[in-house]
Design a protein around this nucleic acid. Structure first.
Length: 424
DNA sequence: TCTGGGGTCCTAGGACCC
DNA sequence: TCTGGGGTCCTAGGACCC
């Protein structure tokens, strides 16, 4: 059996752990730049007039009228809370696949406790006790069924956040009570197509002729169909695969026209993705740079462009990657526009210990790799970004994200620890 | 004024090989 | 009249996920 453990309204729950005064009150979390609402706890979701993924300026009044607390996203806090949840889950099984920041598949096949209903409740209680984060637990034979069981666990209050599919009756009960769109892997397009031919519930889908599913929804559809019928097609993968691409692109805090500021932001993003690249011990053979204006603006002239810069030989050196990125940026930058976003993408990786050197590698490239190593050592010892390239500059405030409502990084910064009462 | 960010997998079709 | 057959690699675009 496989358990899918998913944190309830994860970002909002993280905020509430440190704000007991907000218990049972509506809380939402905003996207980068405080742009949209991206997460809401159940009290906020109950206020159905507050839609997710809406620009915040459009719903600000609603939030105030309903006394909704809102926070800028605080990924430092959420990552650390996620780590705590995942570590708690590892006590229940050596095989845990971290599927996303707030959910994991847990292999229970070696569990000695065969009362899965009870085990599910214990998992839930333990995570909540250790971390303060409420979770839902779905347990079934396949990943797709446990995903669905998790959804059902949370949907029906009597399930108390735990649902186990261990009999045919419970499998049918699950499938008949959920819609096609609830199935993991069936999105908007397929839902529309299925509805047209009167496939409404998850059970309708699981009972369709398999050859139709295979033909119209490819191998992905076929696997889902089989998994809903208790056949394992998606294996649990406890060791994360190396990423095939690493990118970042963030909107500026305000529109930029000054090339050197865009260059500084771009260089900063390169240093971020290059760090991640080195952490997974890969080297990239291509870097993509893109630049765009605000697509929502009615009045500003629009421009967007991207360019792929090929590296002579694979590298993960911040210096080489920055040089390549800025070369690309210079080519696509046009003066006269108000830019909203710049981004970089590293792709076509090779393992860093299998780099095929180029006959024409310059001495400077080898030097830049050595310098990058030294920078990593210094930054690990003295803190992130203590040593950086001069081109990154010191004007981060001019372009960085807006986070006006960020909570303290309670668990990772000494000077932001939670204070319990103050001496007068 | 203000509209998120980071990923994965699959397929068809083109270009190429012997 | 009739113009092979078997394969690989790469890319763009679609669909989906959190």
């Amino acid at each position: 059996m496989i358990a899918l453990v998913d944190c309830n309204s994860f970002y909002a729950s993280c905020e509430q752990v440190f704000r007991p005064d907000l218990q049972n009150k509506p809380v939402i979390v905003l996207s980068n730049n405080d742009g949209c609402a991206i997460a809401a706890n159940k009290h906020a979701k109950a206020l159905t007039e507050i839609p997710m993924f809406q620009p915040i300026f459009k719903i600000k009044n609603l939030l105030d009228e309903n006394n909704v607390s809102y926070f800028s996203s605080n990924y430092t806090l959420y990552s650390d809370m996620s780590r705590r949840v995942m570590n708690t889950l590892r006590a229940f099984s050596p095989l845990v696949e971290e599927y996303s920041i707030d959910e994991s598949f847990v292999d229970l096949s070696h569990s000695t406790d065969l009362d899965f209903q009870n085990l599910g409740s214990i998992i839930k209680k333990t995570v909540e006790k250790n971390t303060g984060i409420p979770v839902g637990v779905g347990i079934a034979k396949t990943k797709s069924l446990s995903k669905l069981a998790n959804k059902f666990a949370k949907k029906i209050p009597e399930n108390n956040d735990v649902y186990v599919v261990d009999t045919e009756e419970k499998r049918r009960n699950l499938l008949i009570n959920l819609k096609v769109k609830d199935i993991w892997g069936i999105g908007k397009k397929h839902t529309e197509r299925l509805q047209k031919i009167n496939i409404i519930t998850a059970l309708d889908f699981a009972e369709m002729p398999l050859d139709w599913v295979r033909k119209e929804m490819t191998i992905i559809g076929e696997r889902l169909w089989r998994e809903l019928n208790n056949e394992i097609c998606l294996e649990l993968n406890p060791i994360p695969d190396a990423k095939q691409g690493i990118g970042t692109a963030k909107s500026f805090g305000k529109k930029l026209t000054d090339y050197t500021l865009i260059e500084e932001a771009c260089s900063f993003y390169v240093s971020e993705v290059a760090d991640l690249l080195r952490q997974q011990k890969s080297a990239a053979t291509e870097i993509e740079v893109f630049l765009q204006t605000n697509q929502f603006s009615q009045s500003d002239p629009q421009y967007k462009n991207k360019i792929i810069v090929k590296l002579y030989s694979p590298t993960n050196s911040t210096i080489s990657l920055t040089k390549a990125a800025l070369k690309g940026l210079r080519e696509i930058y046009l003066p006269g526009y108000r830019y909203k976003k710049v981004g970089v993408n590293l792709t076509h990786f090779v393992p860093e210990n299998e780099i095929q050197a180029s006959l024409f590698d310059e001495k400077t490239k080898i030097e830049s790799e050595e310098i990058t190593k030294v920078m990593d050592i210094l930054n690990n010892k003295f803190g992130k970004n203590k040593v950086k390239l001069a081109v990154v500059g010191t004007r981060e405030k001019e372009w960085s994200l807006i986070k006006e409502h960020r909570s303290p990084r309670f668990t990772t910064q000494w000077d932001e620890l939670l204070t319990i009462g103050k001496a007068e």
